[in-house]
Write a protein that binds this DNA or RNA. Structure first.
Lengths: 267, 267
DNA sequence: ATTAACCTGTGACCCGGATCACGATAGTTG
DNA sequence: CAACTATCGTGATCCGGGTCACAGGTTAAT
């Protein structure tokens, strides 16, 4: 694989997070999450028919030459909102929080990225600064392609450019759905119900019962649905009281999916 | 120019709008807006260094073959949210409102598109349904390229695919900015102030005084910033009282830009 | 000119949820 | 173990702004 790129772990880690100091790989590999280093995951071991899978061999070869791999500890920051775009990250393992925040400290979490996602794509393509901040919330491995390399690659390989356009379209549409959810809903309960249903759809575990792990704090959930922490706490209590769901530690079980769906409909 | 495509004026016009019956071109051309039919505006007479301008001649030729042109009266609908994507529209003249609405009739206006914009791009690229509804709010001329033609064209012309990716990135980033504005602001006043500043930046007229035309109703402004119509009315009264701006008919003059900016900062 | 349809302006009311202020539990770290 | 810090749970308070109701004003259609 290519090691042309220096792992882009820049000074912003220290600026934005007090804790989450840098730990190096050796330590990271023994992390409780059982993370393993994957040599090169551009060719998507995760999502099927994904982005750069079925490209011609020449393109794949070129891609691997410009790709650099790196691992990041919990608390690291891949890039910061407003920072000039350096390139794209391809998430191989772990989860990354994409957020934006205003001057007064209020934060809005856009989404939690999963393996297979491309981070920083719009900024890299358009040449504008990153529009979100990407925080590692769980030991993570990611590949990196610098902006110039990536653009040159796309120029030379039209099929890849089309794939990128498709990826962008989907990113756009999911962001749009997010915005719709926040902008068109009336109550916080509605938004929380929608959030839980979305999350359970994405993270559904074994068949039958709808149960999933929710590793986010109430504070973070609040930032995802545009509400205050206290409101989220109260709503969870409400939902439990109404037997819509039940919580055991970080495991959430949806007991009454139709009930939640009724809440989303706004009634 | 190509006339391969039937002007995509479909049954949805009648369904979604009671008024705004179809008027044919002859009438349209004499409209008070002084609209003139442009033979083919794919090669961007409007925005400079725009989307498909500097493509190689072969690509331009192909493009003009698959492009069909049509005009639309005020009140027409180019496409509807949820409808399977048929293709992209390239706005040549006029303005189109992009909006989404919930089951209970609440509406959120995403943006007002201007000449040079591509409408329905994400849906066309991704193959998913249109995510917004596009309503013509002013006699409009637009080119249309069907989805299959457009995708084939992009497959054959990699440079164009890259341009499309750039366009998508910018669309994404501006939608994101919108979402940020709605999600991170505290008061309705803050959102209205931001809206006015954005709008004046885009529609600034002659030098010196910041004055512009605001053809939107309070209702529509409310839908753009996620507030109620009454609130917008009251806020405008507030702003006038505080000498931040003044209104003459549809012409708005910003008297105290710094004052508005202070409002946006949330203080 | 008359009606109708739509837009602006305001007052009254009231409720959801932000905010503040705690206390109660974990986990973590020296 | 003690001190700290992050998270959760709840009550009290308060206000922004949504909703309802209605009164001019404007424009368009007949």
């Amino acid at each position: 694989m290519g090691n042309k790129q220096i792992p882009p772990m820049d000074r912003f880690h220290f600026v934005t997070r007090g804790k989450g100091r840098i730990m190096r790989q050796s330590k990271l590999m023994r992390s409780p999450y059982g993370l393993q280093i994957i040599e090169n995951c551009v060719t998507c071991p995760h999502k099927e028919d994904r982005l750069f899978c079925n490209l011609p061999p020449a393109a794949l070869q070129r891609l691997s030459e410009i790709t650099g791999s790196a691992t990041y500890p919990k608390g690291a920051t891949l890039f910061v909102e407003g920072q000039p775009s350096r390139g794209v990250f391809i998430l191989c393992a772990g989860h990354v929080k994409l957020s934006t925040s205003s001057a007064d400290g209020k934060t809005l979490i856009l989404r939690i990225s999963e393996p297979g996602d491309l981070l920083g794509l719009p900024a890299t393509i358009s040449g504008r600064p990153y529009e979100v901040t990407a925080d590692v919330i769980e030991p993570t491995q990611a590949n990196f392609i610098s902006r110039t390399d990536f653009l040159n690659f796309l120029r030379d390989h039209g099929e890849a450019a089309l794939r990128v356009a498709q990826e962008l379209s989907e990113t756009y549409q999911s962001a749009f759905a997010e915005m719709r959810a926040i902008g068109l809903s009336h109550s916080a309960g509605e938004k929380l119900a929608r959030f839980i249903l979305d999350w359970s759809a994405h993270h559904k575990s074994e068949g039958g019962i709808v149960r999933f792990n929710l590793t986010l704090t109430h504070e973070e959930i609040a930032q995802m649905i545009g509400a205050s922490r206290e409101t989220v706490t109260r709503l969870f209590a409400d939902f439990k009281r109404k037997k819509l769901l039940s919580v055991n530690g970080s495991s959430v079980t949806v007991n009454d999916q139709p009930g939640l769906e009724r809440l989303v409909q706004g009634e």
